[in-house]
Amino acid sequence: MSSWIRVCELKSIFPATGVCALVDGKQVAIFRPSDEEQVYAVNNMDPFARANVLSRGLICQHQEQLWVASPLKKQRFNLLDGSCLENSEVSVEAYKARVTDGFVEVHL
């Protein structure tokens, strides 16, 4: 039975950027789109390049949803479900994420 894992303080993530956290042996990209208490988490690995870079991508809005554009070749991955806008056959793992008492928590 997995549970919420506390990762870092919310304030250590600049608004509109992402960070990478090591959670239970996994590289998890965590994004904070604005200065509000809303965070998202997906696997950090770009499945096209197989490099751990997604946390360094730009957060963007398309079709009224939020995505991260890979810093390598700009494919976009949905922050909620990990699906890829360019190729429906490809996706990354998406995880639940929340802010509690000023801390970011992830549920694998």
Partner: peptide, 19 residues
């Protein structure tokens, strides 16, 4: 303006294929 920059400009280097 931090969140505006491509990774190259944030980390002041050109990202290579392996990150």
């Amino acid at each position: 303006n931090n969140g505006l920059q491509d990774t190259n400009d944030i980390f002041l280097g050109n990202m290579q294929k392996d990150g």
